[in-house]
Design a protein around this nucleic acid. Structure first.
Lengths: 116, 116
DNA sequence: CGACAATATGCCTTGACAGGTATATGCCAG
DNA sequence: CTGGCATATACCTGTCAAGGCATATTGTCG
């Protein structure tokens, strides 16, 4: 009954890792477990959540369950992101300024006191 | 000191609403407060988190603080998303199948039945 | 059928976080 | 300086989710 927003699901680092892993190809629970070095119950639980939220689907292969990616939620996220992409392309200058700043000094974030 | 992943920050619906609001133009705290009908402390807290995470920056205008969007974190999210976009373009067929399914039956909730 | 492999689920504890309310800080005008 | 507006922060509280562990479930094979 989570019906969590896709974003809430993606908030968990291990879940993002699982998804990224599935980009290369579908995987069984055991494989995910080994590659991410996570305890098996953790993997199953995260997969459950991913599945409920529509990020993945699974099929049965003997005793294994194989999981693979499903489009919906990430498309949704991408859609949400669209207005911002457009924003950056309009305020292209602001983007450039920021990228500049970023490249010149990479130390901790100091707040530049910009006044009018 | 959260240094939370951008995704964790986006997990909060009100924060996403604030960001979306800022796409149209920069806004003062009070404006955000009124448009989203949120209590003022809530707005300030969310803005603090958004600022710490680099989603927004603020400048002072008399007693008002005006907030505007900043690119970094959302670009990061967009970057994370890239491999998946590429994935869908390769497995284009799977995408199509899913979109089909989606369109044919548009019931309120898409609770996929048992995979038995 | 029994033993075993692969995966799922239940319970418990702990920590993080959002909401609410009260209060502090900063800034302006008279 | 005083009061008042705009915003920030402190504190408290309830909720909810992740981690860890034990156990249940399901499928396979001999």
């Amino acid at each position: 009954m989570s019906m969590e927003s896709a974003f809430a699901v993606l908030a968990e680092p291990n879940r993002r890792a699982i998804l990224t892993l599935l980009v290369s190809s579908e995987q069984s629970v055991g494989e995910i477990e080994r590659r991410l070095r996570l305890p098996q119950p953790a993997v199953s639980k995260h997969l459950r959540i991913l599945k409920d939220a529509g990020f993945v689907e699974s099929t049965v292969d003997a005793q294994r369950r194989v999981y693979r990616l499903t489009p919906e939620p990430l498309l949704e996220v991408d859609t949400w992101l669209a207005p911002f992409r457009e924003y950056w392309s309009r305020h292209f200058d602001a983007l450039a300024r920021h990228l500049d700043r970023m490249q010149s000094s990479t130390p901790a974030k100091k707040k530049r006191g910009r006044t009018k």
